[in-house]
Design a binder for these strands. Structure first.
Lengths: 233, 233
DNA sequence: CGTCATTTTGAGGTATTTCAACGAAGGTGG
DNA sequence: CCACCTTCGTTGAAATACCTCAAAATGACG
């Protein structure tokens, strides 16, 4: 089922961040989208599309984690971001994808031809409004990333990243456990740090008894100091 | 006159970056916006709104340069960005402005109550589409900033910044002259560098005979190497 | 022409990056 | 089920680049 929900903390109309809550699509809108969408599963590690390819489709993440990145000329990999459930991806510039996207976990994607989508959007102001909300959400995410990468200390960046992954829903239920589906290299690429710096930062945070790192998950040991470190920078 | 034009390089529908060009608002849309908008001039250095204030209006830059920033607890100033002609600003989170905006030059602004705007948007899918385009444009700008700030060398960041300010229209007409309405401190804040680093970077680029810096303008001396330095990072 | 803000320049400190090597984990095939 | 191999992650030491602190010089403005 196609969904375009977004985190409750930023629910509301796109411009002000307040107003009527419109979390989901109506049945009619969903029908219309699903009529033109192809739904399929993607195995972990497989590429969904590559940068430079003609952007003929837009994708909606129907479950799982997707990484969006681009390999630079100097061999480094710049990670643009991660796409989670209900996230939109596949926006292009000059008709071509700017990034490569790869499934981190198993992913369910809805693939929609851009032609069909834009035609639907022009007919349905309400649905268009959902996309506007999505864009504003994306914009805020990017601003957050800007702030994150602006920090000088590796540990600070890592902590902000973990906080970003700490979905509000899980915050209480999981009692301080954050899932980390992506590799350290992926995190490093996203935070604009080296793999080594990430490793040293994790050690530093472990030694400080702030977090305890597992292979693919993190446990927050000292929530107060954690929160403080997230903001304090 | 209220306008929502955006640079020709990214004209087109928001999702793909191709398709019919819709650069301006129709007369009817402009009328409707102007009916609820207040137009006024702002003197250089004056604050348009402060962070934390209730976000009751959205602004459209009708001419001039606006800086959007936030003073942090540690005394540093984080510059979110600069708003130029036809740019939208005043987006909020939780009903409050996240940044402070100040006029760098004399600025003409259109102030629109969010309530009125959202109500208009819901009735006019075409106008809403313009806003969607704007948001996608903003998103790309943010991505560009991410790439800029991700570079390790101060000179590289500065060069990318200058390239960003080098509006395509002027590119040939001005024969390599880039206007710099903002101060070095503002640039430093935007690029996440210190004022001193900016100064040293300008010197380095001058010595390399790549650029020649004036008080409030820059001349590109070696366009080939300049372009190379913009991309090559 | 004097005052204030902005910008430049210098020297030293500190963080990440680099380069190199080791250790651990996961997947594949026999 | 184990061995092998590839990928991923850890650790160490030196280099690089920006930051910090301090002071002088330049430019704007009344």
């Amino acid at each position: 089922m196609i969904d375009l929900a977004w985190p409750p903390t930023i629910r509301g109309v796109p411009l002000s961040g307040t107003g009527p809550v419109r979390p989901l699509l109506t049945a009619a809108q969903r029908r219309r989208l699903e009529a033109v969408a192809t739904r399929y599963k993607v195995k972990p590690r497989s590429i969904i599309y590559r940068d430079g390819e003609p952007a003929e489709h837009v994708f909606i993440n129907g479950g799982g984690v997707v990484i969006s990145y681009k390999d630079m000329a100097n061999g480094k990999r710049r990670v643009a971001g991660f796409r989670f459930y209900a996230d939109l991806f596949g926006l292009a510039e000059n008709g071509r994808y700017v990034n490569t996207t790869r499934a981190v976990t198993e992913v369910t994607v809805h693939r929609i031809p851009v032609e069909a989508l834009t035609s639907i959007l022009r007919q349905d102001a309400e649905l268009e409004f959902q996309f506007l909300c999505k864009m504003v959400h994306e914009l805020r995410q990017m601003q957050r990333k800007s702030i994150m990468v602006a920090r000088r200390d590796a540990a600070g960046r890592l902590v902000m990243f973990l906080d970003m992954l700490w979905h509000p829903d899980d915050r209480d239920a999981s009692r301080g456990v954050i899932e980390l589906p992506m590799s350290r290299s992926d995190i490093a690429g996203f935070l604009n740090l080296t793999l080594e710096s990430i490793s040293r930062a994790t050690r530093q945070l472990s030694d400080a008894k702030l977090l305890s790192f597992g292979r693919r998950r993190v446990r927050v040991l000292d929530r107060a100091r954690f929160e403080q470190m997230v903001t304090g920078g």
